[in-house]
Design a protein around this nucleic acid. Sequence first.
DNA 1: GGTGATATTGGGAGCGCTCTCAACAATTTT
DNA 2: AAAATTGTTGAGAGCGCTCCCAATATCACC
Lengths: 346, 346
Amino acid sequence: MKSKVTIEDVAKAAGVGRQTVSRVINNGPNVKPALRQRVQSIIEDLGYSPNLSAKRMGGGRSYMILAINDRARTLENWHAGRGNDWVDQMLYGGMSECERHNYHLLFELIDTETQAALSQLSSAIGALRPDGVILTPPHSENEALVALLDKRGVPCARIGYHGDGSHVEVFMDEAKAAREVTEKLLELGHTRIGYIAGSSSYGTSVARIAGFRQAIASSCVSETAGFVSEGDFNFDTAAKAFAETLQQAARPTAIIADNDEMAFAVLHIADREGLRVPNDLSVVSFEDTPGVRFSVPPLSAVRQPTAAMIAKACEVLITAKAGNIPKGSFELPYTFHERASIGPRD
Amino acid sequence: MKSKVTIEDVAKAAGVGRQTVSRVINNGPNVKPALRQRVQSIIEDLGYSPNLSAKRMGGGRSYMILAINDRARTLENWHAGRGNDWVDQMLYGGMSECERHNYHLLFELIDTETQAALSQLSSAIGALRPDGVILTPPHSENEALVALLDKRGVPCARIGYHGDGSHVEVFMDEAKAAREVTEKLLELGHTRIGYIAGSSSYGTSVARIAGFRQAIASSCVSETAGFVSEGDFNFDTAAKAFAETLQQAARPTAIIADNDEMAFAVLHIADREGLRVPNDLSVVSFEDTPGVRFSVPPLSAVRQPTAAMIAKACEVLITAKAGNIPKGSFELPYTFHERASIGPRD
DNA sequence: GGTGATATTGGGAGCGCTCTCAACAATTTT
DNA sequence: AAAATTGTTGAGAGCGCTCCCAATATCACC
């Protein structure tokens, strides 16, 4: 196996032209089956694999999908030694799908702040020339980033974003999930339900709160049955918010948290204050990371189809016809995992 | 901002030659400070970022480090919804270090079986032409893969492997860690200590067992104080192994497991059999994933410096002078996190 | 102030591929 | 059976960069 086999070597060995080999490796049309076969086997004999950089230079695809995540939040998770289920799921879904198409997934972090994000994204696509970019929250809602991608002609998929379908959008029905969970708690007899919100800069959070309020409004219980407090997706803010809630005259009988970590904080404070879960307090969250099974009691949670959303995004971006900017809305189903953290109002 | 700014555009705008711009973007020598300054600012004005594919084609670096992980084990973790702390740590360490050098980390999975691994690795480096490859266990111990990389002239770093230093090796002292943990348990008065091994195809496992045996041998307790049973890094095999152990006349008073999941299995079986941890049984593991804090009781564990190892590997690969295959051995410190799962023999 | 050394510049060639397009072969149509 | 269509090939050009090297500018020193 020569250390550097080029398309020319293959062509020479097969006694054909460069272009014919190119057609074979790209599964192009108009090559006689017998010839294709022969070239194919020579490719294998020589251990040839086309140089992606060269393909890109020649005007072809780069065979790369660039997945963008928020730097601050990602690093915070890693730094806290907390694991990063979202990243895991992204890689799982993204890499699996990319592999199927002989693509490569490139994962990068960019800052939250728009100016910085813009320049980082710009240089990333300039350097890597990916065939598509996947934007996750909160970047998926940043119109400036989307506009940049549009201008550069790079197709993008927006995860967790539901807009006018002018781009590729892959999402779950957050409002419905929140409504469903809330209704579930209402059915269990809960009369005072608190929602600890993540960040209003996440459309997903906003949508969930809307769903939560809908469920409360359309139920027969009092209007004060539901209230929202502000967290920031992390333990401390949620612990503080929940502790404050407990100061009030009527304490909540159930809490919905925007992510697992905030739910853990609620569990923690509840324990400290002598509240038994689920007897005195039911707790539900949105996320369903691996850790929920180990909490005491195990946490009930809505699970976003993260891996599936990224996989779908990859599929759409990859299979788009060259030169065509793909678009479309894709709603994927969530699942609700009921565990011991919820129960009827005592 | 034009959608495609090339080095030529910059050169023209600055009234200089291509090569001068090239020197500026690569921080090359022999450019007058004033000129460099001027070109630099024009680059920013134009929003130019060099096309990596073109750089690579021109004979330069690819600015990519390829990190290889084992497909089966990685997918198994993901599939089981278990999170993948190893992958998280790899990305954390790798991406952080790569970013510092303006590099990109590419993450790929390849099969365990040598022939398949060989052809997958071959086509990956053929396609991507990375400047360096990071091999993790068990691939880091696969000489065939290393030989392939050598032949192709691609520098590689072997993680968790300690050999003759003919390549880049980054590891921790597994034997010492196992020895230390074992000694700790002996000090606590344990007289019968079981080691549940991962896979003998992992050098790290083999080294730990050696350390374990050393500690047992050099202690004053009976020779039957330590014994090893075979798991396979997963729950079921460990549960089975431990359950069998309990059948024997003299049951263990302490268990060391080769990874967290197997330790969880031990915890599970112990609970089922009415053994209290740590009163009746002490449990320690190697890995220290985020989940250990949530188990009951929280698991004591040795933590591998995964992120730091990958970061070190990236650093060495990236800063190697062009054309030089870097080599060297780097031992990084582990940490032991003592939690409630161990205690004195009752 | 000249001479050799050294620092600074830019132009040609080429990396390995795909694109475009022209040439030729195999088929179909009339 | 000739003409028209379609299928199959390969050669030239060019993608955006770096290498190599030649040309020029600057500097040190006697």
